[in-house]
């Protein structure tokens, strides 16, 4: 009987894992401080955040988490533009003909799914999250410079900016977070989930899931015995 440690293969490089931590922290911080700001403006939440910080203090906390998120988004752009891994990931996540076929087949044709690094559902999730976060940052900046924003845009547009960055944006954030957590931990075939978000590594079984995929990134430097299967 072998007492060797189960082999774990590097799925994500350390910078990717670190940015994911920062992303998690900033999103949670933004959602929490955003909800506190909303609570101050609305008696409906039943929370009294004034007991902890004033409106301005919550605003400052929100802004700093926003800066953190902005930096993470900037990192993503640089990662895509200047790294091989980034190029590869981005090209894999772009919509293509197979996605259309997959959509027509409602994603049930296994042969089509296996050929892609990211399935249709994963692509939709990532694109929605990406666009959502970028829009949240943009609307946040517009609200931060509210005097200039209000000077140059119509009131109607401002209502949409305010709504998107307000409680509706918060609700969308909650929904996307739940969806993301479901995809990682609860989805059939993935339950009870992966620890790749923790250290960037995956198990043999998880690795086998990707083995057919062209351009898969794996590295055996961790155990010295890993292989590309």
């Amino acid at each position: 009987m072998s007492s060797e440690t189960p082999k774990r293969y590097i799925r994500f490089q350390k910078p990717v894992v670190i940015q994911h931590y920062i992303l998690m922290l900033s999103v949670l911080g933004l959602m929490f401080s955003g909800y506190m700001l909303y609570s101050l403006k609305s008696a409906e939440t039943g929370i009294d955040p004034v007991g902890y910080f004033s409106y301005s203090s919550w605003e400052q906390i929100h802004i700093w988490f926003g800066i953190l998120l902005g930096l993470t988004i900037l990192w993503h752009f640089l990662y895509i533009l200047f790294t091989l891994y980034g190029h590869s990931d981005f090209l894999h996540i772009l919509p293509n003909k197979n996605d259309l076929k997959s959509l027509i087949g409602l994603g049930f044709k296994r042969s089509m799914i296996k050929k892609e690094r990211f399935g249709l559902q994963e692509k939709i999730t990532y694109w929605i999250i990406g666009v959502y976060l970028i829009l949240m940052v943009i609307t946040g900046l517009l609200q931060y410079a509210n005097v200039y924003t209000a000077n140059y845009i119509s009131r109607t547009l401002y209502i949409y900016i305010d709504g998107f960055h307000g409680i509706y944006g918060f609700l969308m954030g909650v929904i996307l977070t739940v969806w993301h957590l479901y995809s990682i931990f609860l989805k059939p075939g993935r339950f009870p989930g992966t620890l790749s978000w923790w250290d960037g590594k995956i198990s043999k079984a998880e690795m086998n899931r990707y083995q057919d995929v062209k351009g898969e990134i794996m590295d055996d430097s961790d155990t010295g015995r890993g292989s590309q299967g």
Binding site: I124, Y168, M172
Partner: peptide
């Protein structure tokens, strides 16, 4: 508009979950 957006997102999630279990 925002409520419709939220309902759409929830519907999409529910559909994807149903799809996942149907594939299973």
């Amino acid at each position: 508009f925002f409520l419709a957006l939220i309902v759409t997102m929830i519907s999409l999630i529910v559909l994807s979950i149903i799809g996942d279990f149907y594939k299973l």
